[in-house]
Amino acid sequence: MNSSTPEDFSSARYRQLLWTAFTTIVVKEIRRFTRIWAQTLLPPAITMTLYFIIFGNLIGSRIGDMGGFGYMEYIVPGLIMMSVITNSYGNVVSSFFGTKFQHSIEELLVAPVPNWVILSGYVIGGVCRGLAVGLIVTLLSLFFTDLQIHHLGVTVGIVLMTAVLFSLGGFINAVYATTFDDISIIPTFVLTPLTYLGGVFYSINLLPEFWQGVSQLNPILYMVNSFRYGILGVSDIHVGFAFGMILLFIGGLFTYSLHLLNTGKGIRN
């Protein structure tokens, strides 16, 4: 018994503790969303396939070109990004709220896991689901169009950063949520409208000047367009500016999430 003797607690052992705790959270999160794959991985695959068929094939063939590309080619990056956004957000908000609801968050709170490791673990869990669904949607899109990647670095970088950003958003939502209704309000009334108005289905150049200006206040526009730039090489906005904005938001949300954990908002009395 009693092998936990913190007196001989070296910095190497501390690093090992942090890494093991972090990987444990990530593996637990991956195990969670793969265990309930019929609720997490299958629905976006079906929804996006319907989007490809209805908007891409049936309606898209009558729309013609958009931004110099066939309509199907044009909407595929946006739909992939939409899946990444909703799934990375949805994973963290439902998982973290679930642990609060079941009180299993206490398993982590009593353990010697620093708050930044807890936050990082949940965020990476959300990123993993976002990327898994993004990959599934990408593979499905290959049945409908040829996908060429214009700039691999931009494509991978932007999708990763977007998944991180929306995982953080999901985390903050979960911290504040006190009922199951609270975890669906933001996705339904904020995230979905912003995504649909973020240039997934159209170029903002089609809009009147005023609405183009309004659209530029929508952060999702920058992510969708940067991702589209990575794949197609076209964008309505400056990609460097988009990277800067996303990084700034990640920094802000990470700091705020950590503050919420440190003060125990919603999880400690």
Partner: peptide, 20 residues
């Protein structure tokens, strides 16, 4: 205060992971 949908073995092994 455990996740009722997890397996018994996973609950214990995961907790050990939180302690490094």
């Amino acid at each position: 205060n455990f996740n009722p949908f997890e397996r018994v073995i996973d609950i214990v092994v995961t907790q050990a992971g939180f302690y490094g």
